[in-house]
Write a protein that binds this DNA or RNA. Structure first.
Lengths: 207, 207, 207, 207
DNA sequence: AATGAATGAGAGTTCATTCAT
DNA sequence: TATGAATGAACTCTCATTCAT
């Protein structure tokens, strides 16, 4: 009908895209606030203003929308990390760039993250439960394993190393996000120093 | 009721203590196996052989029994950590002893931990979900903050430092528990090296 | 506590039995009125006045309560039929007694049957959907197969024969139950004549 | 809209007819495979390739399309039966021809019938659930009632007689369709013998 | 204090039907 | 008229919690 059909995506198409995004956004918020287990599909759709059944026009289950979010996170952070690999960076430089990128990434993501925890829930250090976080783990581990394999880094157990680096980045990142103002540079600097040099590499107390 | 109540703890008392402990033990197992969210009060009481209602004579909710477990963990690990403080240890020695104690502790606790994860659940790095773990975090943080305050340690942000150290210990500990055989000494050695010296403090790749 | 505990089943026990029976009765009515597919667990429990969850204290699913009803029917009609077998009755006598027993049985059961059909549903001849009916089919078939095997009856295909006999008994029984007054003797007489002698065995129209 | 609407049924008309038939065909298949209750409107439209909403341009509900199918069946089988009436056939001949026609009819219809039943469902004798079957019942009953009225048949209750004859034809027909190969002639022969002569009219076991 | 059946809110999910396009 | 996404009531079933015994 329309003479510009090739350009006109149509209102229906627009709402579809918008709804899909609305569900994704709501899911990100809800998972962040409540955690995967506690979050319900109803929590998600309630936040979109859509009807209960509409959720299932887009995602087949709670698990599927979670997976979609993880994909989304991986899609956006993964390339950043991949871009750092194999460019002849020294190991230190690679860690600096990666951590910097990570902290910038989570700061940017932060508006979608958990700030508030529900009152009844015991306060656990259940960090990393956001789907984006889950997705980046594999990337970081791979990058570190590669560095080890290429002998550009230390020769310790790559799985332990990846676990330790990710753990530092994640938990320091979490603390960073809880503070006001959010000091990305300071947190990244600390995390880099800690990852590369440990406690002994941190600035000493003056004699 | 009892005519010798003034001396006799009585069968009732014994039962009360035994039941309370039975619930606590069952809860530890169940939280370890299923995680806090997935675990149900029914799972816990089923394992005790007690009746459903009896649970509520001892704990008002799932949350409360979780808190009780956390207290229990703190009660047992806390003194170990406290025993290390203020004994004139150098900062390095303190970290070594604390990490060693921690890895021994979790290895000992391990039989109560998660081996199996529910099948449908996305595999996340939801470390530290056992209540004992939750409890030791505060202790570790306090010890580190104290070391900073006493100027025996580095002068960085104590909250970040505690977060980083705990994160390393926890995540490396998790990996350790997933391996067979469980190599407490090796994992502790890695964690200590990483905490104190970072990646650069780890053994280098041979030239 | 009670001095007559050996006699006293206790109020709890009474309500349990009463509730189980209430659910069974409600299920019989609901299956009769709506059919197995249309009937919902909610329809059943709504009729008992119990809470939704209570149903699941007694039966694990709609299917299980259906099976329990079928067992109930089989338990009551099965012995009647079995009592007729192997007693040296002639084949005719066996059929007469069996059909007589069947019509008496369904007339007795009738107060639990469908009288009303929901308005929206297309009126189909979906007879035999009550669980008791489902249960007796197997019995009747076995009895007929046995008669064939023992050469006391005709030598046609036993499965077809059973199907035909059951079909007649069931459908004529259904019509009988729809009439007022319910004429068990007349219907049984017709069914017996039809089963044994077919249309040609029925009373002829006077010349 | 069309300038030649006065002569041309038009694409729209053709589409309308074709769609209506497509829905009818799909519904026949689906009802046959799943049964009336289990079948959903979505099952039907999915099979047509049409959009969900289009269904409601042709039929107001699942019930209505079912009724339309019944009409369709009656429209095709009814004339066959009517053609047999009032042609001076003897009663036996009439039964033979009618049953023969019926068995040929259902064998022909068979590709649209139930072969598969959903797994969880209790196995019931829910014969006659196809709409065509529902429709022919009335015809058969009328034919038999007429035979009685004309005194060409037995003088028993016509409603009971019709019920019995239909029941035999239907259930034996169902069994026939479950066997491989489908033996229309054998089943029809059995049904005719059973309807006319009952069990005693069937071939005797050899002495 | 122990029991365990009853409760009912709420979980995920389905589906007949509506209605803007 | 065809479309197909949106709707929301209703479904089966779970489970923390209560309370009569």
């Amino acid at each position: 009908m329309s003479q510009v059909a090739y350009l006109n995506v149509g209102k229906r198409e627009q709402t579809k895209v918008a709804n899909r995004q609305a569900i994704l956004d709501a899911a990100r918020e809800v998972f962040g606030e409540l955690g995967y287990e506690t979050a319900t599909v109803r929590d998600i759709i309630r936040r979109t203003g859509l009807a209960a059944g509409t959720f299932y026009n887009y995602y087949r289950s709670k698990e599927e929308v979670f997976a979609a979010l993880a994909d989304d996170g991986a899609r956006r952070f993964g390339p950043i990390l991949k871009g750092l690999r194999g460019h002849g960076h020294s190991f230190e430089t690679f860690v600096e760039l990666a951590i910097g990128a990570y902290f910038a990434f989570i700061a940017d993501e932060h508006r979608n993250w958990a700030a508030r925890r529900p009152p009844g829930e015991p306060h656990l250090h259940v960090q990393g439960e956001t789907p984006e976080m889950a997705a980046v783990f594999a990337e970081v581990r791979d990058a570190l394993a590669e560095a080890v394999a290429e002998r550009t880094g230390p020769m310790a157990d790559p799985d332990y190393m990846a676990a330790a680096c990710i753990a530092i980045a994640r938990d320091v990142g979490d603390r960073m996000l809880e503070r006001r103002p959010i000091d990305t540079a300071g947190a990244a600097e600390f995390a880099i120093a800690m990852i590369l040099g440990g406690l002994k590499g941190l600035p000493k107390a003056p004699a």
